[in-house]
């Protein structure tokens, strides 16, 4: 095998087939994938299904805690999970820049395989294109996913007093990317929270009737996701800053850069809106999930008459509005 991806790897002929066999089939191996031609055919159960798609163009391609491949699998799995679906099958499309390092491509495929293995999800169809140097930046990945709804979950209307749970420390992915992107030299173990959340959904099974809504705070972070939930619910949100879980190193790095963890993407966290009566029980069970030890109830919904805004009680007891992200966050001068 070549050590670089060449244009001919995308010509649809022998080299394409070699690339697919040597990297993708090797790592994503399953009967459905290997035996399929242009599409994979599978038996449906007769329940409700969820279907989603997402494209990944992260830079840098490899970062502490993951890489673009792991992110592409987790991202789509988590979108299914927030719809209340058990993820079953994924498709993945690669758009690769000519000259891309073959070893890195394999590394990306391996981490996708590992994430699939851990979650019991299969990649059952895919596509590979190679484009001229400069046409994309390294590699772009698209994944689509299908999942079966768990216990016929559906989102419900949000009421006054409904509690908001976040499943762990926020801002870790976005901060990790900022550190890498701006070349900040920090000693420590800051890494992306990129992880699949299907195990959290399994834990929620007994409470599914009390779960009002789930959402993963990816682009735009917790603040933007809460503002989106607010749009849907039509109710204001009261947040308590001092209980929002943020790792010490995430806090310090963002203070240094002049960025705000509330607006950084999380790639392995979920916001769960729960009926107030069940909230503590749900929280207890979530905290027993791997990687969710710091989960917390961070706020609640207000009565319908109050302004429809996210209002936060600050660490010193003041109040401020938490709006959605507008424009990219850029590090400040001093």
């Amino acid at each position: 095998m070549n050590d670089k991806v060449m244009l001919r790897h995308g010509d649809g002929g022998k080299h394409t087939s070699l690339l697919i066999k040597d990297i993708f089939y090797k790592h994503f191996h399953n009967d459905m994938l290997v035996n399929s031609l242009d599409a994979s055919v599978f038996d449906g159960n007769h329940g409700r299904l969820a279907f989603t798609t997402d494209s990944f163009v992260v830079k840098p391609l490899v970062f502490p805690g993951g890489n673009i491949g792991k992110l592409a699998v987790c991202g789509t799995i988590n979108d299914l999970v927030t719809a209340g679906a058990k993820p079953l099958y994924l498709s993945c499309g690669f758009i690769i820049e000519e000259g891309f390092d073959m070893e890195l491509l394999e590394k990306i495929a391996v981490s996708m395989r590992e994430t699939c293995r851990r979650t019991g999800v299969k990649i059952i169809t895919g596509d590979t294109k190679v484009v001229e140097k400069g046409a994309v930046d390294g590699v772009f990945i698209n994944t689509s996913g299908i999942g079966g709804l768990q216990a016929n979950y559906q989102s419900k209307s949000i009421q006054e007093g409904d509690q908001i749970i976040i499943t762990g420390g926020i801002g870790e992915h976005g901060t990790t990317i900022a550190v890498e992107r701006y070349g900040i030299k920090v000693e420590g173990n800051i890494k992306s929270d990129c992880r699949p959340l299907n195990h959290v959904l399994e834990k929620l099974n007994p409470y599914i009737g009390s779960i009002k809504l789930m959402k993963d705070p990816t682009r735009g972070g917790l603040a933007t996701a809460l503002n989106e939930i607010l749009e849907v619910s039509g109710r204001g949100i009261q947040l308590l800053e001092k209980v929002i879980p943020i790792a010490g190193e995430v806090k310090s790095i963002n203070e240094l850069l002049g960025l705000d963890p509330l607006y950084h993407a999380c790639e392995g966290r979920m916001i769960i809106v729960v009926d107030t009566e069940k909230a503590k029980e749900v929280l207890g069970d979530i905290r027993r999930c791997e990687g969710c030890e710091d989960a917390a109830i961070i706020g609640s919904f207000l009565s319908a008459g109050l302004p429809s805004k996210v209002v936060m009680e600050t660490v010193i007891g003041g109040r401020r509005i938490v709006g959605p992200l507008e424009g990219d966050m850029l590090p400040r001068i001093c």
């Binding site: 010193i316 003041g318 401020r320």
Partner: peptide, 16 residues
């Protein structure tokens, strides 16, 4: 200083 302005707003100091 701009950082002071930002912290004052972030803490919601004016509301206290």
């Amino acid at each position: 200083c701009g950082t002071h302005t930002q912290m004052i707003a972030k803490f919601g100091l004016r509301t206290l």
